[in-house]
């Protein structure tokens, strides 16, 4: 665990630096692979940037709305650099909406845009688990296995490493190969990425030591992941049916 790095008088959070690095790598690699999905690299970059900026703004506004009295007493805090004042669900929602609007206005097919974003997202997910390893977040349950790591007063499963390995496998699975992609249906690669990520979480949640429980035993993350896989199954079916219809015409 390395939660902070000291550069001269500055103390920087390692997790934040790792995330920034992987956002950059994801964008750079995504720009390179975008043409394989029939996307213009510049438009892809702009789309990713719109999602990122709107996502961050949405996450901050969401946090502020959820803690309105605190921000009314100190409105200047709205532009504070503090990453703790971000609401992830609101950020994802606003980022997705902004991306959808940008894609429609720029005549980018939604399926192609989602498939084009998939390699970047897969890279980012790998980075998220490395960031968790640095900060000690998403820690494992106590274990006596020889590869356990000492963390937060116990020898624990190195869940961050398990999850990083799973993310690396998913990255390999969804990475576009060849100059052009023969897609069975536009958007299917993205749906499969989401399903595989949810499946990995469902499988590895067992080893996590920070799970939130439902009815005393069920783990919320597993239930949510199962529902996401079911939704992905429905989405995959719909995408393939619509692609077959188009082919038939």
């Amino acid at each position: 665990m390395l939660p902070t790095v000291h550069i001269g008088p500055l103390t920087l959070p390692t997790a934040g630096l790792i995330l920034l690095l992987f956002v950059w790598i994801g964008l750079a690699r995504g720009e390179k692979t975008a043409p394989r999905f029939g996307l213009d690299p510049d438009r892809f970059y702009n789309l990713a940037l719109v999602i990122l900026v709107a996502g961050i703004a949405g996450a901050r506004l969401g946090y502020a709305l959820r803690n309105l009295p605190a921000f009314l007493a100190s409105p200047g805090s709205l532009i504070s650099l503090s990453p703790q004042m971000l609401s992830l669900p609101d950020g994802i929602l606003v980022g997705a909406l902004a991306g959808l609007i940008y894609a429609q206005r720029s005549n980018i097919s939604l399926g192609a845009a989602l498939d084009g974003l998939t390699p970047a997202l897969a890279i980012l997910m790998f980075g998220v688990h490395l960031a968790n390893l640095a900060s000690g977040a998403a820690f494992g349950a106590a274990t006596r296995l020889p590869w356990g790591i000492p963390l937060w007063g116990e020898i624990r499963h190195p869940t961050q490493i398990y999850e990083a390995l799973a993310a690396a496998l998913i990255l390999l699975a969804v990475w576009p190969r060849g100059r052009t992609i023969q897609n069975m249906a536009p958007g299917l690669r993205f749906v499969m990425f989401v399903a595989l990520t949810a499946l990995a979480r469902l499988a590895l949640e067992f080893f996590r030591g920070d799970g939130v429980l439902l009815f005393g035993r069920l783990r919320v993350a597993q239930v949510a992941a199962w529902v996401i896989i079911a939704l992905c199954a429905v989405a995959a079916g719909a995408l393939l049916r619509s692609a077959q219809k188009l082919k038939g015409r």
């Binding site: 937060w152 399903a195 429980l213 783990r219 597993q222 995959a236």
Partner: peptide, 28 residues
């Protein structure tokens, strides 16, 4: 894809139930 999702959903439900019954206790 049909086989993949069917397996993921069935095994996922079984694993969730197993975790609920035999999962390690939280220490936090």
């Amino acid at each position: 894809w049909k086989a993949f999702f069917a397996a993921a959903l069935i095994l996922g439900a079984a694993w969730t139930a197993f975790t609920a019954a035999f999962g390690p206790e939280e220490t936090s």
